[in-house]
């Protein structure tokens, strides 16, 4: 192992992350190379520095706030059926719902649309019981028919 390769591996060596065999090769090199041994010292100091860390002093309400959130979470998930069902059931349900919606669109696409006028007619069917009379009324709207009827009269 040359010096360059050794220096690339020094950090992992100090962290204890090299395989036993690799670590042994490195140790052998370090025993006979002063320059790399010096590099090792500097690396160890840097590793020690990186272990220094600051941390926030947690607020007094930190725990209380969490448990309040947790209680809200529990209430929410109690009504949330997805929290109980296995994922495959949810996936199957979603697929079935998609198929139903798609099927409804396909089924209704070929059918005539019900207009507002149709609805009015449907709600006043009794008015259409004497359909013949209504037809005649339509005829009376025609001026020529009225004239002809007058002549006959």
């Amino acid at each position: 192992m040359d010096c360059e390769k050794v220096r690339q591996e020094l950090v992992a060596f100090v962290d204890g992350q090299l395989q036993e065999k690799e670590a042994q090769v490195l140790k052998n090199h370090l025993a006979g190379c002063q320059a790399c041994a010096r590099e090792l010292e500097l690396t160890e100091k840097a590793v020690e520095l990186s272990r220094m860390h600051d941390a926030p002093v947690l607020s007094r309400d930190f725990e209380r706030n969490f448990w309040a959130r947790f209680e809200r979470e529990k209430k929410r998930s109690f009504f949330d059926i997805t929290a109980y069902l296995p994922r495959w059931v949810l996936a199957a349900s979603a697929a079935a719902a998609t198929l139903l919606v798609a099927g409804w669109f396909v089924w209704t696409a070929g059918r005539p649309r019900v207009t507002e006028e149709d609805k009015v007619v449907a709600s006043h069917l009794e008015l259409f019981s004497d359909y013949e009379a209504i037809n005649l009324m339509d005829l009376l709207d025609d001026f020529e028919v009225i004239e002809a009827l007058d002549e006959e009269g």
């Binding site: 690339q8 950090v11 992992a12 962290d15 992350q17 500097l42 100091k45 840097a46 990186s50």
Partner: peptide, 16 residues
């Protein structure tokens, strides 16, 4: 491994 190496090198420069 690379991230740790680089971060350690940055701290080493601080030490130097």
């Amino acid at each position: 491994k690379s991230a740790i190496f680089r971060a350690t090198q940055a701290l080493r420069r601080l030490e130097e």
